[in-house]
């Protein structure tokens, strides 16, 4: 049984003339939490956005190499990026709920993608429960999502992504805009979600990576420097550069 849900083989990525990622080959394990760390501009967010083809939205980008999701190359010409994004959900750096009601934020995706949902109410409830937000919002489902606090908004965004029942959840520094209490809640949530989902998370916060991830990949200047068990990376890294970064000597 192959337990790698996403496999990258010699991936290069360019913004115009600038190369942002060089020769990345790595695999992401199913139902694991993988953290991508590295200084700003190292390419970790770019890599994340390659996995659900969000970089398609930027003009003048170019991808080389292979990215296999469940065995299929997601950059093959006959692949519809919309299809990929339904299976690979994303949570963004800043909470970005739609200016709609809490309920409609959750039901938006399933409704429009033509998924036949027998019972939308229970899907909404289930998604909000998974994101540990249900108890806080169950009485205000028809209020605007913009009234929630930042931490609640971010959990709503996670619930919104979960409502699509994705296989993979990409998280792009999901707690960087949040206070410590909200951050703790989201971290607990990630621990919970990993039972059912594969999670790939970009983070600036090394303690966070150490706390929540099973594997950690360290990027520097568009290269994958080291990729290993989190424990190993944070206790006894193979590469000097990794050690310098995690001990705070640069970055």
């Amino acid at each position: 049984m192959d337990s790698h849900i996403i496999k990258l083989h010699k991936v290069n990525f360019y913004y115009g003339q600038t190369q942002a990622l060089t020769d990345i080959s790595m695999n992401f394990g199913q139902n694991r939490v993988t953290a991508l760390i590295g200084p700003s501009g190292c390419g970790k967010s770019t890599l994340l956005r390659l996995l659900n083809r969000m970089n398609d939205l930027i003009d003048g980008t170019k991808v080389e190499g292979e990215i296999l999701f469940e065995g299929r190359n997601i950059y093959a010409p006959n692949i519809d990026p919309v299809e990929i994004r339904r299976k690979v959900g994303m949570v963004f750096q800043k909470p970005n709920p739609f200016p709609k009601t809490i309920y409609n934020n959750i039901s938006y995706g399933p409704k429009l993608t033509g998924v036949t949902v027998a019972d939308m109410d229970s899907l909404v409830e289930q998604s909000l429960r998974q994101a540990v937000l249900w108890d806080e919002v169950k009485d205000i489902l028809n209020k605007s999502a913009m009234n929630l606090s930042g931490g609640q908004q971010q959990r709503l965004c996670i619930a919104r992504a979960l409502a699509m029942k994705p296989d993979v959840l990409l998280m792009d520094e999901p707690t960087s805009a949040l206070d410590p209490i909200s951050t703790a809640k989201i971290e607990e949530l990630i621990e919970e979600l990993k039972k059912d989902y594969t999670i790939i998370i970009v983070t600036h916060n090394m303690q966070q990576a150490a706390r929540i991830s099973d594997e950690t990949a360290f990027f520097y200047l568009g290269n994958l420097v080291e990729y290993n068990k989190t424990e190993k990376i944070f206790t006894n890294p193979d590469v000097k550069q990794t050690e310098d970064y995690i001990t705070g000597r640069f970055g």
Binding site: M54, V82, E83, M90, A161
Partner: peptide, 22 residues
């Protein structure tokens, strides 16, 4: 905001529906 478009597209909603609905 661009983030609205990104959020919608990341859910696997098509471009036209994103424009039309969001």
């Amino acid at each position: 905001p661009q983030t609205f478009r990104e959020a919608s597209l990341s859910l696997g909603v098509s471009k036209w529906q994103t424009i039309y609905r969001i």
